[in-house]
């Protein structure tokens, strides 16, 4: 009788304790998710009012005037595009070495480790680095420097996904090709790349999503520009830097544009991430 009572008490205590901790877990999920929803909600409410065609067609305005973000959007597109053009080939080839030629090389784990660190290195440090080696030597800020800084951020993302995706390609495919007498480079190009293509593209999309909102590395590489500029050797405007400048300004119209720009960036990043996700799940289904 006494033991039974004790057992009951123990059982109640345990289930009470379970209820408390699970309640806390539930609460943290509720807090975290509603907090994030709140941010997105405010962003949409504040950003959507300023959204109009002129945002995409007009230059950034002077304080108090009207205008849009066209030059900043184009600047961002140019630098992002260039960064991907520089970062992707190098990254893909590096990932290829790690997964194919150098799979059992002692160098590969070292590169993987360093690459992972580069992947999460503070982006402002990368901006400083490009400032030191490009801007300081050229003597002025430029869109090219901005693109290079972004390329340094693209690189590790692409390296990582390329390696991961190539490692997922079944070895039997490579062996089958090798048995036909195919040289390694041909196997990589025609078998491994094809099997891993969706994954590698996903990596590039994720890299683009990552650099779309990067501000810190552009602050002192591409700087900013009030006007239209497609000259890679001159300072170039970009959406994140314009948002930074406008948000910290005392002018109402600049602040409104900053919200609109923030909404545009968020939308672009979310679209890219969803696209990457769809692509990778599709390739997963095929396998």
């Amino acid at each position: 009788m006494a033991t039974e009572l004790r057992n009951m008490r123990l059982y109640r205590r345990r289930s009470r304790r379970n209820a408390i901790y699970m309640g806390l877990s539930l609460a943290s999920a509720a807090i975290g998710l509603s907090w994030l929803a709140l941010i997105l909600g405010t962003l949409v409410i504040n950003g959507i009012s300023g959204l109009s065609l002129s945002v995409f067609t007009e230059m950034t305005p002077p304080p108090g005037g009207t205008g849009g973000l066209a030059n900043a959007i184009v600047g961002s597109l140019i630098m992002t595009g260039l960064a991907v053009l520089i970062g992707t080939p190098i990254g893909t080839l590096a990932g290829t070495y790690m997964a194919e030629y150098g799979r059992y090389d002692k160098l590969t784990p070292v590169i993987r480790f360093i690459n992972d660190i580069l992947l999460s290195a503070p982006s402002i440090v990368i901006g400083l680095f490009i400032y030191e080696i490009v801007v300081a030597r050229m003597g002025h800020f430029s869109g090219l420097a901005g693109a290079l800084a972004l390329a340094v951020i693209v690189l590790p993302v692409v390296v990582r996904t390329t390696e991961d995706m190539l490692l997922l390609v079944p070895n039997t495919l490579r062996e089958a090709a090798a048995a036909l007498g195919t040289p390694t480079w041909y196997i990589i190009a025609k078998v491994a790349y094809r099997a891993a293509r969706a994954g590698i593209i996903t990596g590039v999309l994720l890299a683009v999503a990552r650099i779309t909102g990067e501000t810190a590395p552009l602050l002192f590489t591409a700087l900013n520009n009030q006007f239209w500029s497609a000259d890679l050797l001159a300072p170039m405007p970009s959406l994140p830097v314009v948002i930074f400048q406008f948000a910290l300004s005392p002018y109402e119209n600049w602040r409104d544009l900053a919200w609109t720009g923030a909404l545009l960036i968020t939308f672009a990043v979310l679209t890219l991430s969803v696209l990457a996700r769809v692509l990778s799940s599709k390739s997963g289904g095929e396998r």
């Binding site: 941010i39 962003l43 994720l206 999503a209 990552r210 779309t212 909102g213 990067e214 501000t215 994140p240 948002i243 930074f244 948000a247 923030a262 960036i265 968020t266 990043v269 979310l270 991430s273």
Partner: peptide, 8 residues
């Protein structure tokens, strides 16, 4: 993946 400037 949301850029930090949004949070800022």
């Amino acid at each position: 993946g949301i850029p930090s400037i949004i949070y800022g």
